[in-house]
Design a binder for these strands. Sequence first.
RNA 1: CGGGGUGUAGCGCAGUUGGUAGCGCACCGCGUUUGGGACGCGGGGGUCGGCGGUUCAAGUCCGCCCACCCCGACCA
Length: 476
Amino acid sequence: MDEKLPLRSENFSEWYNQVIMRAELADYAPVRGCMVVRPYGWALWENIQATLDARFKATGHENAAFPLFIPMSFLEKEKDHVEGFSPELAVVTIGGGEKLEEPLVVRPTSETIIGHMYAKWIKSYRDLPILINQWANVVRWEMRTRLFLRTLEFYWQEGHTAHATEQEAIEETRRMLDVYTDFAVNEAAIPVIPGRKSESEKFAGAAESYTIEAMMGDTRALQSGTSHNLGQNFAKAFDIQYLDENNQQQFCWTTSWGLSTRFVGAIIMAHGDDQGLVLPPRLAPIQAVIVPIFKNEDERALVLPVVDKVKSELTGIRVKVDDRTEVTPGFKFNDWELRGVPIRIEIGPKDVEKGSVALARRDTPGREGKSFIPQAGLKAAVETMLTAIHMAMLEKARAFRDAHIFEPTDYEEFKQVVQNGWAFSYWCGRSECEAQIKENTKATTRCIPLDQNTAPGKCIHCGEPAREKVYSARAY
RNA sequence: CGGGGUGUAGCGCAGUUGGUAGCGCACCGCGUUUGGGACGCGGGGGUCGGCGGUUCAAGUCCGCCCACCCCGACCA
């Protein structure tokens, strides 16, 4: 393998693949389109899970587990849902050597089977709301796959709730969109734009879909989390009814919302640089790595006890000591930079003598990011630096994003800007305009930001009156 | 499913008119090294993607198949 990564600016997709392989986040599985998530990648996902799970619990949700297999007939009960998903279903037709009476679908998402169970569990308004989440794997038979971004099987969480009123369901949908936004900004340092999906980009079977859209390092957009108001579509398809206070049968209002291992791809592409990964400190599996430095046995005997002492003082911080003897310190510096560890702590004979350590920030390459600080009070210094790195990463990503969002005033300019950025412009709301824009430019409607106070204008494509402005971009 | 590309050691590749399968990295052993990707010496590792054909002889020529990667239409 070459020592250097391909340059991010020259070949973004090759850079992306190699970062994943070299940083040992994931590997290709023997089945096309499937991946193995390796321990380092899974540790990152576990940190994402932990912080999201805490947010779900804090907003009143409980975890449960529903089956992997769904009767084919369930999928067929909601018209838009089956239309949307049938091309990408994996179907089991044989079990235990016998042809099955009814084929079983490997879940592409669980609205149907959970809807079925909710119909069974919900009797009266006293049973509502039901607020359940599950952490699961799902399968969608995609044509073209990319590690983390689109694989046949992926890991995610899917929240499914049922409510007595439309208003409650709308509030839930928006609440979880806010949770995702808060997570993206405050944990992953990714400044996402929340908004509503257009009709054509909506989830199959939803009344309204909402999304958080993030800008990647090549300016393409990535849908990083979604929240759907399902209206009464699934309630009617699965007969999810409750008896209200007046002894009347009513259909429930349901929602669903999900965030997947795709988000790992978002972290890689939003923050990475030519040296490799740059992990946001609050999610990084290793927050600080200690590299001991010594030339001989005498120095080794001097340095290692200080390394142990420093490590034991950094309580509450995810620290790793790189005690490999078969590679040089210089190799380790590059290795941990590739793996995106936010802070490197070097401890050598000079530090032992002076009672100091060398700190290097991953987000600031070269000498500029290196500082020498006393061992006393190191924990506070590391904590401060982790926060500073988070803020700097968020700011850098925000500045990059804002520098690549344009507000074109005519279609020619629109076509220009979406080649290397996002367009924020008026849209009449008609799917035909959207489709033609996509055909001409490959840009799709990413989201319609909420709560617009925009004065009416004219559609960027057809010139007809338009009430709203939308983000358009080429997307993953 | 269309277009392009690649299959030879774990990874990256070379292999001439068909004639005993090689290089770099990685791996193992020993020694010297170690504050920005160390070096020397010695070693282990292959049904050349699969099946069939041509031939005295196939990694190499011919046919079929398979897999993976990249680019398009669908998608979190």
